[in-house]
Design a binder for these strands. Sequence first.
DNA 1: CCATGATATGAACCTGTATTCATTTCTTGG
DNA 2: CCAAGAAATGAATACAGGTTCATATCATGG
Lengths: 211, 211
Amino acid sequence: MVYRATEFTENRKAQTRERLLKESKKLVSQAGFRGLSIAEAARCSAIATGTVYRYFPSKSELCVAVFEQATQREIDAVSQAGTTAHSATQRLRSSLECFIQRALQNPTLAYALIAEPVDPELEQTRLIYRAHWAESFSTLIRLGIEQGEFIPQPETLCATALVGAMAETVIIPLQQARHDANTDTTPLTQSHCQQIVAFCLRAVVKPEHIV
Amino acid sequence: MVYRATEFTENRKAQTRERLLKESKKLVSQAGFRGLSIAEAARCSAIATGTVYRYFPSKSELCVAVFEQATQREIDAVSQAGTTAHSATQRLRSSLECFIQRALQNPTLAYALIAEPVDPELEQTRLIYRAHWAESFSTLIRLGIEQGEFIPQPETLCATALVGAMAETVIIPLQQARHDANTDTTPLTQSHCQQIVAFCLRAVVKPEHIV
DNA sequence: CCATGATATGAACCTGTATTCATTTCTTGG
DNA sequence: CCAAGAAATGAATACAGGTTCATATCATGG
């Protein structure tokens, strides 16, 4: 045995993998998973198409990796947002707002993660991450219930419903935003956002705790 | 001119078209839009693959037709359910329950209509029908608000959120149900259903009007 | 029963990408 | 610098399923 990958080589490979993921995510952010082809991803990452297969066994798995990374990032951001405030209600409000704001900030990516048609393998992953989304809200809700601010109810189901309500209300503006990326839709969505949050809070928080 | 389609021929054609739609819907109910291929649809309808194209210009349009018919049927059923009761709250409750019950009754179809990845043309249609769904609930909500039973809020947005909440909470049990079609999931989903409805009502109905 | 044209047939064709793989280039340790 | 093996290349291939179209069958009304 005369060859064994040295640290330098391992680094280089790790970098290539990261670049590939980053460029793929960029492509998805621009045109959804539909806009992600192996050839294009390779070109953007300055490698040959065949090389992609040294890093991911198939296109599906590349898509899954992009999806997982991007979604986890969103979940983390939303969870993080629900950390600062003091009352459970405020924390939930912040999380919900964060979810919506971020979706409106990068509509194409949001749509790709939430609702864009994808191949079955990725859809499977999406389904799993739906549960992760719910989980991230569940924690907040359980806390609110324990502290007596929220109405007692099964947290997971409630969390799922919240995610659904937000995703659905956000998808239609999303479609519009994707069409006319030039139009400044912020003023419209700003009050939208407040309304959606209000809807969600009513379903979760005891009336006397809603400001 | 010696040939002009007579009533008999027109009937036969109409029948073939209907059969094609019916069999296609059956296929979708069994395995989603992924399970709908031109060849299979033709076989089930006892016609040749090429003949399909005398009735629908492309697979997309066949899918769209199946989708529209099936979805409209659901919307009608749900709307209908919100007709009998007297109070706005009861009417909304009936509609919501109907939505969920029907979804659980035919999980694969429900999943296909709500969330299954599909080609872009059909996704476009789905987007349009999301709005139809919202519309069908909007009417109920507007009424409830006018009568003072419901909390004032933009009906369309509220309706959209309701649809999203229900769809999302129903999709995960749906996946399970599709996996183990043998297991009797009714007892589990029965209380589920009540919880989801309760969640929705809290977001819409004034507290004093919820029984 | 025939001429005319509509309708049905289904095997062959097309298309767009994901994959593959023979070849080349690069790494490594001696 | 070299042998041995890893990694990269990208043109060629594979593939699946939608779509086409030359041909056959059927319907119509004289």
